[in-house]
Design a protein around this nucleic acid. Structure first.
Lengths: 232, 232
DNA sequence: AAATCCACTCGTACAGTGTGCGAGGTTTGT
DNA sequence: ACAAACCTCGCACACTGTACGAGTGGATTT
């Protein structure tokens, strides 16, 4: 009745004595496709074509599409670059973690649609989480609070970056349709004057810079809040 | 070339002198379907069947499925219940906002897959955002910092709740397969002993309570961090 | 009363999707 | 040379969103 909980990572790796294609090759090609055309641009047929293979050939290397996505997801987690927690302050480590994670997501916008859909149990994701955990432990957190701190930080980054991606994509689509945007803001202004004026403000300013500032502001607040929790 | 940025909310409402079905009726039915069977359970054909209508009949009331999802998304935002910001402290308002938002998402898990995919420009979503904004303004934030504070709080809630939903769903699926979970943890333990032991701990404890505590911890930290930003 | 209009319904069709199956080919081991 | 393991892939199935255009029934106009 209930579907078995499954993940690529919970099965042993394939012997990998392959003569044909390799899993890595497929994963890399998938990342390219995703970066170029987004999540909807990745279909097994398209991926097969890119590799000069039939669509169903890929199923030799991967149980199903979700597993492929798990692999692909962890692949990009491998781009995280973190300092050794023993060599800096926890605050520096946490800050680098947060920024690195945000850049990663912005570089691969399709990840936002995978978060909350797939478990992040791959070695790269776990490795990054473990580093952050060690850092918080060194900072003085104990027991479950280590996890809570971990969760708090990553939650903030996820939560701020996901809508950020949505915005930038919507903006890219509407780049040559500023009129429709203006009209939209005008409509909103009727009910929410504050919000509308703020949008005008933001629209005229360098939006990238504004987003960067919002991120820094929030990150500072989160880190301060964690620091406060550390004193007691 | 570029697809026009569009949203239901940016077009005037339909005259609504309808004699047949109504938009609300459709939206409500869609919410029921989504709550029962998740995002993948909602197809135009199934929704049509539920309303004893042909699948394509619905396209009279809704331009396409994405617009329907926008409507449905805002519909549930209407479940937010917020205090009058002028009658409590900003901290109380923010706290209620956060908890209310989390409950909303947990009640309608499919929302997690809509965040970051659709703009939240509906009246209910904007109304809630506006209330929070007023609260932060009363607290003493000015200009862009009002938005930054807004973003920080909502980001945390989104970010912590999205994976939370993913977890509870994975857990529900695997409820009768504890073995596979145990095996999974064992595999992880090889590389990440800390993490594995923590998972055992969490698994044995009341997981709902643990999640609740993680949320409270993080929310407290975020609010403290915002408070710190308020003093200067 | 007749004609016109318009809100609304929906069957059909099309281009996609993920993937189960089983028949083939190719490489490796003995 | 034979067998086993590895790998490829065409076909088929059930399903998706939605464009199109023909059809229906009631209200409005003439």
């Amino acid at each position: 009745m209930t579907k078995q909980f499954s993940s690529v990572w919970l099965r042993e790796a394939r012997p990998a004595k392959s003569t044909g294609r390799s899993r890595d090759e497929i994963v890399r090609a998938a990342v390219e496709l995703l970066d170029a055309d987004g999540l909807d641009g990745l279909s097994m047929r398209r991926l097969g074509a890119k590799l000069s293979a039939g669509a169903t050939s890929l199923y030799w290397y991967v149980a199903n599409k979700d597993e492929l996505l798990e692999l692909v997801y962890d692949e990009v987690w491998g781009e995280m670059r973190l300092p050794d927690p023993t060599e800096t302050t926890w605050r520096a480590t946490a800050s680098v973690f947060a920024h690195s994670m945000r850049r990663l997501i912005l570089r691969h916008p399709w990840t936002t649609r995978l978060i909350g859909r797939l478990p992040a149990l791959g070695p790269n994701a776990l490795g990054a989480a473990d580093t952050l955990r060690r850092s918080f432990h060194l900072a003085g957190f104990e027991g479950l609070e280590i996890d809570y701190a971990n969760t708090t930080l990553t939650s903030f980054v996820f939560g701020i970056t996901i809508p950020e991606v949505a915005w930038t994509q919507a903006m890219a689509e509407t780049a040559y349709h500023e009129d429709s945007m203006r009209e939209a803001v005008a409509l909103l202004a009727a009910d929410y004057p504050d919000l509308a004026s703020r949008m005008n403000e933001v629209h005229s300013a360098d939006t990238d810079a504004v987003r960067e500032m919002a991120f820094s502001f929030g990150l500072g607040a989160v880190l301060d809040g964690l620091a406060a929790r550390l004193i007691t």
